[in-house]
Design a protein around this nucleic acid. Structure first.
Lengths: 146, 146
DNA sequence: CAGAATCCCCACGGATACTG
DNA sequence: CAGTATCCGTGGGGATTCTG
């Protein structure tokens, strides 16, 4: 890992690659999308099942999220014309590939969240809200740029 | 890929793993964090350089983002006590590992964004805003659940 | 059951001005 | 240069109500 630095690539002015990143993050950035996608990665579910499987979600956000995901071809919506309506949502191959990518990120989180929590706690212990705790200075006299 | 479905894992009630995912997504969910982290993955930069390298960012958001990342141990802040102040931000190993994970997600985006765009365009062509376009029904008579 | 529609709040974030 | 402090607009999203 940690190969990105050694790339020394010309990422300078954010040519256009960042557009793709934003496109994905705008989609999975909100919590509901992630929860819905990962939940559906297990198996297809109907509306009410999803609402049950994703604890805090409101009907509104569930509907909005599902529509957006359908629009982007990440899942399919199948409605059955039965007397009590039944609608099943299932990830497409595209959706599952995204789910895998998200899982990879989740793996990172599971691996490193302790370090993050530790660092967060350390900063909390040093002054955060209390008092005007000035940032510590490195190399008081400074080496001067060049 | 697409292994997540075959897991058939007990993700049911989102035990606690989702917490980690959220923790990460809450961090990289906003556009600025991603842009800052990926920008710094190339090389350490000072405040003004970052502001220049990340086009649309305001001082406020740059500061807020940097503080959050420092708090989480993803980057280090080094201030030099010179007459014109100089502060350099550099990713930690932890930060670089996150950057790599984000890059992986970017790779997914670069690979699949066309499919997403296509699907999005297709949905735009079928009725979205115009008229009340009812959803098509699958299997009009329905097979009944079981 | 599966949504659509409406109201409404507040936190995220931009713009601006000031400071060490 | 490298921030901090303040004001304020916008829209994301929850709660509620109604429909096919």
């Amino acid at each position: 890992m940690v190969t990105s630095r050694t790339l020394a690539g010309p990422c300078r002015a954010w040519p256009e690659e960042s557009t793709f990143i934003r496109e994905v993050l705008d989609r999975i950035g909100d919590k509901w999308t992630v929860l819905v996608v990962t939940t559906l990665s297990d198996e297809p579910l109907r509306y009410s099942d999803l609402q049950a499987s994703v604890p805090g979600i409101s009907q509104r956000m569930l509907t909005v999220t599902l529509k957006a995901l359908e629009r982007d071809g990440l899942l399919t919506r199948t409605a059955f014309a039965e007397v009590p309506p039944r609608v099943v949502y299932e990830l497409t191959d595209l959706g599952r590939s995204l789910a895998d990518a998200v899982m990879a990120l989740a793996a990172w989180a599971a691996t490193h969240h302790e370090q993050v929590a530790a660092s967060r706690a350390a900063h909390a212990r040093s002054g955060v809200g209390r008092e005007k705790t000035r940032h510590a200075l490195a190399r008081p006299t400074g080496p001067a740029t060049s």
